[in-house]
Nucleic acid binder design. Structure first.
Lengths: 223, 223
DNA sequence: TAGTCATATGACTGTATGGTCATATCGTCA
DNA sequence: TGACGATATGACCATACAGTCATATGACTA
């Protein structure tokens, strides 16, 4: 958790530091991200970081567990003005669409969130990642369990297994699919977010429906 | 490419160095892997590494593009004594089963191979990863395209898209699923490979069939 | 034995990092 | 004005790393 000093900062300064931190940590894996570079770009002194945060991990943890979820939720809420979906297809469609839109609109936050799937040897990082992952997985499983009871999900599918399959597709898979369609890699998108516009709404719909068909109806041709 | 000096080494020494390199690079992301630690554990001098390889990246590239594929192919060939599968389900089943078995038998190689999906800011690493990924994706797409023509795949599915969905499930997804079932994380499995035995054949079959059902038949209940 | 070539060595260099701390500055209130 | 608590500073420290290079070793030949 940031120290009170950080929250006492003038809003503009605090936001500038936050944005630059997101930039730094989204472009590099944790141990390659550099506080030295961050402070140089922010125009503040090295020591100031330690007035605001306990240490590097404290800053990173704050981004990952507070700042990213806060912004992501704001995005999802803004998209879900409609009633919550009741069918499996509707639920997945909303999940996929929101996921893609969030990623295209906020590649840096999306990249930060994706970092938790990366294996690492650092024990403290592993603990942090495991915590974030477990939270997401639990939410998914609960939702799918509800769908089994409502008869929306075939009953010979284990909800927990389905949650992992969906999570892998929505997480890494979707990112790769969208980047593949755009013909760029993640770092390029981070540095030139306007590239996202090359994927127009029609193409996006086609993409989402393609993935949906596979997940909902399967790969086999109908009998 | 390793220099000739490396291949002139007595086999035992060369293999020891190779194993330790696999250990070092599988437990840590590239930039955290340390040649200093590698040579200390191998009992050779720092300079010797530079008699065998151009630099750190040369060693890593060799592992990723030569050593890992060589061993993986050997594993797959050994498993595919039967005729090549002709149905979609048979094809996927073999892919999933072989994938899981390889991962359980060779967690370190599997981890090395998975590293190419990690985003990185290092341009040389990105090029290497892109190369390895593109190769795999092309192979997958070709195979699925053949299945479309054979009527094995529903014709409203884009083979390229299906290839990415399957790849994400077989890649990251399957790893998470298996680790979830084992109740450990990857690093723990790397360091204690015998943990893999806690997943007996029956459990493995159930797992594979569960994933297969989702991919082949979809999540929706049959009408 | 003397000479030659491939190989092995490890001290050393340059560079970058996270984190510390004594000192300076600022804002506010008496 | 003076003084005090909060905040800002950047030189500095210990540490770790990839990569270099002058030197040593060993094996083989003439």
């Amino acid at each position: 958790m940031p120290k009170s000093t950080f929250f006492n900062l003038p809003q503009a300064k605090r936001e500038r530091i936050t944005e630059l931190a997101i930039e730094e940590f989204s472009e590099r894996p944790y141990h390659r991200a550099s506080l030295t570079r961050l402070v140089a770009r922010a125009g503040i002194a090295k020591g100031s970081v330690y007035q605001y945060f306990d240490d590097k991990l404290d800053l990173y943890r704050w981004l990952l567990t507070e700042e990213v979820p806060r912004r992501k939720l704001a995005h999802l809420r803004a998209e879900a003005e409609a009633a919550p979906p009741t069918s499996l297809r509707g639920f997945l469609r909303q999940a996929v669409l929101s996921g893609v839109r969030f990623m295209l609109a906020n590649p840096r936050l999306s990249q930060l969130a994706a970092a938790v799937t990366m294996p690492t040897d650092d024990p403290e990082l592993r603990a942090l990642y495991a915590e974030v992952l477990a939270q997401g997985h639990a939410g998914f499983t609960t939702m799918l369990r509800g769908m089994v009871q409502a008869g929306q999900l075939r009953d010979d599918v284990d909800p927990e297994l389905a949650a992992r399959v969906i999570a892998s597709v929505l997480g890494i898979g979707l990112r790769d699919i969208v980047l593949g369609q755009l013909g760029v890699d993640m770092l390029a998108l981070l540095r030139e977010p306007s590239m996202a516009e090359r994927l127009d709404d029609a193409a996006l719909e086609r993409l989402v429906d393609g993935v949906l068909t596979i997940l909902v109806d399967g790969l086999a041709p109908p009998p």
